[in-house]
């Protein structure tokens, strides 16, 4: 069952690289939140109850409802629900994603370790790399933010693989999630989108030598 959820997670990753509307990217984030919620529910049943409830709330409420809702509000307010220009061709994006998956698989097998769950490792390393991919090859600040959240989802998934033995690690992952995401979204929603009235990265080029 856990494996199924993780495979579904990997499929959302593939889709995120070729989605060409902001609204579909945001929907992907919501689905990823739900999938991670499922993984946490199935995987962490042996840690104490209060901690578990906290983790489930974080994944369900924060990751799959709150963050997508905020991002959705930003795009409707700025009237940018149009295409997020993919400045690489469709084929290149798909090809890169497949290459990332293949690389992660090979890496996972190369490292073969009894404590390493290959499927977890592949999905999370791919998520991290696809997050970085979105941050490098997309042009708008909102896609960068989404890329960062996908990267964080990957890291969170990885921390769940270690979580049953080291609950502290999962709590640290939540800390990362809450603080960085809130801070990034806070600045983004309150300031950038208001002040610049434009969410292309190109406007942020005053600072240079």
């Amino acid at each position: 069952m856990v494996n199924l959820l993780i495979i579904a997670f990997a499929m959302t990753l593939t889709y995120s690289a070729i989605a060409n509307r902001f609204s579909s990217l945001i929907r992907i984030l919501a689905i990823q939140g739900l999938l991670i919620f499922g993984v946490a529910l199935l995987e962490l049943h042996q840690i104490n109850l209060i901690n578990l409830i906290f983790i489930l709330l974080e994944t369900l409420v924060f990751k799959s409802i709150l963050v997508p809702a905020i991002l959705y509000a930003v795009i409707t307010r700025n009237k940018v629900s149009r295409d997020c220009e993919i400045n690489k061709s469709f084929f290149n994006s798909i090809f890169s994603v497949i290459a990332i998956f293949a690389f992660s698989f090979v890496l996972a097998y190369q490292l073969h370790d009894e404590h390493l769950k290959i499927i977890y490792f592949t999905a999370s390393v791919s998520a991290i790399m696809i997050g970085i991919f979105l941050m490098i090859f997309r042009k708008t600040i909102i896609t960068h933010t989404i890329g960062y959240i996908i990267l964080e989802n990957g890291i969170f998934l990885f921390s769940l693989a270690l979580g049953s033995d080291m609950p502290m690690i999962v709590n640290m992952g939540i800390l990362l999630d809450l603080f960085s995401t809130v801070l990034i979204l806070g600045i983004f929603v309150n300031r950038i989108s208001d002040v610049f009235n434009n969410i292309e990265v190109d406007v942020l080029t005053t600072l240079k030598d």
Partner: peptide, 12 residues
């Protein structure tokens, strides 16, 4: 914005 974004990646 740049500092927070990149520092978050760093901390991740």
């Amino acid at each position: 914005w740049k500092y927070v974004f990149v520092a978050s990646i760093g901390i991740a």
